[in-house]
Write a protein that binds this DNA or RNA. Structure first.
Length: 300
DNA sequence: CCCATCCCCTGTATGC
DNA sequence: TGCATACAGGGGATGG
C-alpha cells in the first residue's frame, strides 16, 4: 500500500501486534523480497530469528521495526511496500497466502502466536535488516518512535508532512530550488516524503496548481498553500483508512480503505471537475499519469 | 543538478 | 476467443 496514509494504516496495525513480540521463526519463500537486504535468505532468517521488536516506526513510505539491542550496532527490520506489498497478521500456522514472500512467526506475551505475512504481487517491495543511524536534526526518526535514529536506508528520505519535526520553511525552500515540474517535485522523496501519484494529483487540484508549473515559479505563499493541501489530503485519507481501488491495498486484516470515494482528480480523466464541471484531463509527467482540471489549474 | 529512459514484476483491462 | 498492448499506487540506476 504505497503512499503515506496506506503505509501509516499498516504501521498502526502492526504496532500492537509486534511491540514486545519475539521472532520464533522466519521463512523467506522468495529472495526477491530481500533485495534491500545485504545478505542471502538464510542469513536474513538467521539474523532475525530470536530478536524482539521494540516499536513500529514510519517515515514517508518506509516502515521499520527496531530490534532489541544485542549489544552490537542497533538494527531494525526495514520494509518498503513498493507497489503492491502487504503486511497481514494471521493466526500462527495459517495457510500460505497467494503472493506470500516472507513469513515471520512471532510470540507475543499477551497475544500468543501470530504470523506476520509479507505478501507482494509485483515484488517491488522488500524487507531488510538495516543499521540504525542518528538523524541529521536530532529529532525522532519518524512516527511511532522517540529515538533520534532511522535505518541507514532511510537517511536520505525527507521528513513527511505529518512528522512533528517537519519544517514547512525548509521544505518550501527545497521545493522552490527546483526547476522541475511541481508534480515531479512532490514525488521526490528527498524533498518531501510520503506523497505518491494519487495524493500529488489531489493536492495540486485542491491548490489549483497546474502540475507542469515549475516548482521554482511558485511564490512562497503558493508553495505554502500547496504544502497545506498536501497535509490536508494526507490527513483526510488517513482518517478514512487510505485509498483502495482493489484488493491490493488493505490493512493488516485485509480490509480496504474508503478514500477512493473522495478523489477529485486521480483516475477521473474525462469526468467532470467537482468544482467547475470541466472534464478532468490526463497527461504524462515524468512517466507517471497526471490528472488535473484544465480550467481550475491553469498554467501561468 | 536535471532529465529521460529503463529496470525490477504480476495481473487486469482494453483493443484488434 | 485469442493475442498483443497498455497500464498500475514505487524507487533506483544510468547515461546524456
Amino acid at each position: 500500500m504505497p503512499e503515506l496514509p496506506e503505509v501509516e494504516v499498516v504501521r498502526a496495525g502492526l504496532a500492537p501486534a509486534v511491540i514486545g513480540a519475539r521472532v520464533v521463526a522466519v521463512t523467506a519463500h522468495d529472495a526477491r523480497a530481500l533485495t534491500r537486504h545485504d545478505g542471502d535468505s538464510a542469513a536474513f532468517e538467521a539474523a532475525l530469528t530470536g530478536r524482539t521488536f521494540e516499536a513500529a516506526a514510519r517515515r514517508g513510505k518506509f516502515l521499520w521495526l527496531p530490534l532489541r539491542d544485542f549489544a552490537t550496532t542497533p538494527q531494525a527490520l526495514i520494509a518498503h511496500l513498493g507497489m503492491s506489498g502487504q503486511f497481514l497478521l494471521r493466526p500462527g500456522g495459517a495457510p500460505i497466502e497467494r503472493h506470500e514472500r516472507i513469513r515471520i512467526d512471532i510470540a507475543h506475551p499477551a497475544h500468543g502466536e501470530v504470523a506476520i505475512v509479507f505478501s507482494d504481487q509485483r515484488t517491488f517491495g522488500s524487507l531488510a535488516l538495516d543499521a540504525l543511524v542518528p538523524t541529521m536534526d536530532g529529532a525522532p526518526g519518524g512516527w511511532g518512535t522517540d529515538a533520534a535514529v532511522t535505518p541507514s536506508q532511510v537517511a536520505h528520505i525527507a521528513r513527511d508532512p505529518l512528522d512533528a519535526a517537519f519544517s514547512d520553511t525548509r521544505t518550501i525552500a527545497a521545493m522552490r530550488a527546483k526547476r522541475s515540474a511541481v508534480k515531479r517535485v512532490l514525488l521526490d522523496q528527498a524533498v518531501v516524503s510520503g506523497v505518491g501519484n494519487i495524493y500529488a494529483d489531489e493536492a495540486l487540484w485542491a491548490a489549483r496548481i497546474h502540475p507542469e508549473t515549475a516548482a521554482s515559479a511558485l511564490s512562497p505563499e503558493v508553495a505554502a498553500r500547496l504544502l497545506d493541501e498536501v497535509r490536508a489530503v494526507l490527513n483526510r485519507a488517513l482518517a478514512e483508512g487510505g485509498t483502495s481501488f482493489d484488493a491490493q491495498y488493505v490493512n493488516v486484516n485485509g480490509q480496504a480503505g474508503y478514500f477512493a470515494h473522495s478523489l477529485n482528480a486521480y483516475g477521473r480523466a474525462g469526468e467532470p471537475c467537482h468544482r467547475c464541471g470541466t472534464p478532468i484531463r490526463r497527461i504524462v509527467i515524468g512517466g507517471r499519469s497526471s490528472h488535473f482540471c484544465p480550467r481550475c489549474q491553469r498554467k501561468r
